[in-house]
Amino acid sequence: MARKPSPQAMRERAAKTAAVMGSPSGAAVAAAPKKKTSLAQFAREVRAEARKITWTSRKETWITSVMVAIMVTLAAIFFWIVNTILNFGITQLLKIATGG
């Protein structure tokens, strides 16, 4: 397990950080310099990342779509029932309030 730094060491580190971040040139020093990449290297990196993509199969996509459709239907039915109950309750409450 790592040793906990002393309070003095923590204060010194905080002071150094504040000094670097406080100065206008310090912000540039604190940020890592961007390395220039060529268009060809960028294309190679994009291609390498694209190879890591795993696509779902047609069956998995179909099953997921059906599940989403079922859940949307159930949610619509639930909110329709809640809306109907609240509408009935408010209508009855307004009837009572208006004396009708």
Rank of each mutant, 00 (worst) to 15 (best):
A31V: 08
E60A: 15
E49D: 13
S25D: 11
A69N: 05
E12Q: 14
G22C: 05
W55E: 11
A69F: 13
V20T: 11
R11T: 07
A18F: 03
K59P: 00
V66F: 14
M67A: 15
K52H: 05
T64E: 13
A18R: 15
K36N: 03
W55D: 02
K36L: 06
T64R: 15
A18V: 07
Q8F: 11
I53A: 01
K52L: 09
S65D: 08
R47M: 09
E49K: 15
S6M: 09
A19V: 04
S23T: 10
S57I: 10
A32L: 12
V72K: 12
R13M: 08
E60Y: 06
K52P: 03
R47D: 09
P24D: 05
K52A: 06
G26N: 07
M67P: 01
E49P: 00
A32I: 10
F42W: 06
A50D: 09
A15R: 14
A43L: 13
V20K: 11
T56H: 13
R11F: 12
T56L: 14
A27C: 07
A43C: 06
S23L: 03
S38P: 01
R13Y: 01
P33G: 05
V29L: 15
I70F: 12
A31Y: 02
T56E: 12
P33N: 04
K52S: 04
L39C: 01
A48C: 04
K59N: 08
A40C: 03
T54P: 00
V68Q: 10
Q8E: 14
R47S: 12
V46M: 13
S23K: 05
K52R: 15
R58Q: 11
A19W: 06
A32Y: 05
S25P: 00
M21G: 02
R58D: 06
S65N: 14
A9G: 05
R44G: 00
E60N: 11
I63G: 00
M67V: 10
F42S: 08
K35W: 00
T17K: 11
A30N: 12
A9T: 07
V68S: 07
V66T: 12
G22R: 03
S65F: 09
K34N: 02
T73I: 08
T37D: 00
W55S: 03
M10I: 15
E12D: 12
A32F: 08
P24L: 06
V46L: 13
A43H: 08
G22I: 04
G26F: 02
G22K: 02
